[in-house]
Design a protein around this nucleic acid. Structure first.
Lengths: 186, 186
DNA sequence: ACGGTTTATGCAACTAGTTGCACAAGGTGA
DNA sequence: TCACCTTGTGCAACTAGTTGCATAAACCGT
């Protein structure tokens, strides 16, 4: 139940239209809370109906016309409430770890290539995060908002660092397992 | 679309009833692929209908009677196919990071306590993983299956290590932000 | 001025996961 | 012996997220 709050946060940072939000989700918030444009439009409709945001006045609010939203006081209050509330961590689900566990039973045939691919993806993501850090968080500036946003970015960097290291080890381990094409039949 | 494969893996490790599976999900596979008993029963039904598993012969298959399942060759084949297939990583969603980002806009009031709580939860999980490592992976034994399972466990350990470290920093950072009860109004 | 691409909004149907409850059998103590 | 608790199985309804497609305006070359 966090998508509405992600949208409220994004809109407080800057009032936007559905498509602008979609783009910003792809670039920054989406790194830890992804959403498609359909989800976003649907949620904008709900938030407006609930009186948490409103469409900025415009000439004709027709289809194909940009429609920007801003957060109302009730929306800010709801976001503050949600941020402060205690929440249990949702269980993670990780397909790759599951596949490795399955490979322990049915064999590792074909797995190594995909591990390498994942390694590359994570390396790319890590590089992107470091780029952002260099650009947006040069040493020195540390207002409150910057501090918190930097903290979030650092979580991303450290997570990707973990994955690249772990995947390198996984690739190496899987590569040196007995025999090519091993597949552990019944 | 991984729950059926998680179940196939678990059943290959050891044929089980629905409830036994539920318990094993809580203890081990569930660390990276959680599932409730309702999900498991539903999926067992589907897997049986699809001919990937079958119920072990028993006396009366009535309600309240244990019913164990084993994997059929078609099930093993499907699991092997899935394990080897290339898959894109699903986007993560992390509420805590989102809340921190929201806090940068609406203020950190009330957040610190929950960060501490999360820190404790991750410390506990980390301790549990280390316990399992000591128990199940003493130095020396390293068959193929052990190697892979140990690799998965190590991912869990490293992930929890990351979280505990990051959360410690987050708690410290949030604690020293300007003023108690800061809340950054419009 | 017309046909194609890009920008922008949105609906509908589907899949996956969660929550809440119902039902049956077997054991246990009063 | 009967009320209650535990174990085990399961349905139904709901919530969240995904996929595929429809629609419309604007911009752009010919």
């Amino acid at each position: 139940m966090s998508l509405p709050h992600a949208i409220l946060t994004a809109l407080l940072e800057k009032p936007s239209s559905g498509l602008e939000l979609t783009r910003r989700f792809d670039r920054s918030i989406g790194y830890f809370w992804s959403a498609t444009h359909q989800q976003i439009y649907r949620e904008l409709g709900k938030l407006e109906a609930d009186g948490l945001i409103r469409a900025l006045p415009t000439q004709q609010p027709a289809r194909g016309q940009k429609k920007s939203y801003e957060v109302l006081p009730a929306g800010r209050a709801e976001l503050a409430r949600w941020t402060a509330a205690s929440q249990d961590p949702k269980p993670h689900r990780d397909t790759l770890l599951l596949r490795l566990r399955a490979a322990a039973v049915v064999g590792t045939a074909g797995l190594e290539a995909d591990l390498r691919r994942h390694l590359e993806l994570h390396e790319r993501q890590l590089a992107e995060y470091r780029e952002i850090e260099k650009r947006d968080f040069p040493p020195g500036r540390d207002g409150t908002e910057d501090r918190l946003r930097h903290l979030v970015l650092r979580a991303g960097i450290d997570l990707e660092t973990f994955w690249t290291q772990w995947l390198r080890r996984a690739v190496a381990d899987v590569a040196e397992l007995p025999g090519p094409e091993r597949s552990h039949p019944a």
